[in-house]
Amino acid sequence: MAILINENTRLIVQGITGRDGSFHAQQMLDYDTKVVAGVTPGKGGSDVHGIPVFNTVRQAIEKTGANTSIIFVPAQFAPDAIYEAADAELDLVVCIAEGIPTLDMIKIVNYLKETKTRLVGPNSAGIISPGLSKVGIPPAMAFSKGKVGIVSRSGTLTYEIASHITRAGYGESTVIGIGGDPIIGTNFIDCLQLFEKDKETKAIVIIGEIGGTDEEKAAEYVSKNITKPIFGFIAGQSAPADKRMGHAGAIIAGGKGTAKDKIEAFEKVGITVIYEPEEITQKLNLTLK
């Protein structure tokens, strides 16, 4: 079945005429994602790679029946793009944009609680349900259709771990990049809940990093709600305190958010912790074979 996106996903690319938007619209088309529309205010009536461009999200939905959007506009304009997508009642909005101010995000996530729209991101690599749909920027070669669900705060680290799962022949049901910012629309628990219900997903991998307490909260949730085999990886064991490690959310502040705390929280509830990406193969062999 896969979660969040599948063959019925009909996608709008917000910011399709920009460099990244246009490039990844093509990449997603190549993956057979149903990219049905683009939106760039002022460019309505034109097309990009044969995809019709509209001035507003509402127009795009009316003409194409889209149900999902992906946002490639620059951080300064991304909040407005998210509000527009939510106002048009899309089911799912995936925000790739990086660098949205935290207070803007706080307003957005609080506003979205009153709408039917789910936001994934920002600062996310997006989502891929291998063989069905790709709404994001992950390189197709790292993935194959299969039975492991992955939820992660990172991009390339996720590709790294997924590529081992792919090579071992297990494949992935859905892979979700929830984003590296401190305030995000969809968290680990939301995804764990969906993976637990998804029949195709036989095992779950959770990839966290230093900063915040989302991993600890996820561990708490796992202990009560997850019956499937679950594996965890935490990046940033060697990171010093008070230094932001690239991602806005990856910082150990006030003694909180260390890798050690997160690994302990995982181990306490029976999440199998892997310490280097390639270890995942051997751990999956023990569980799924």
């Binding site: 990172s154 991009g155 390339t156 680290l157 590296g180 990093e209 990046a235 991602h247 990856a250 280097e276």
Partner: peptide
């Protein structure tokens, strides 16, 4: 490339007995 992979690389350097001199993400 990528913050998560950069941290994981540093961690692995440490795991195999080295000490990372830096974190560096060249970006997307």
């Amino acid at each position: 490339n990528g913050a998560g992979l950069a941290m994981a690389t540093m961690d692995l350097i440490k795991r195999y007995g080295g000490e990372p001199a830096n974190f560096l993400d060249i970006g997307g």
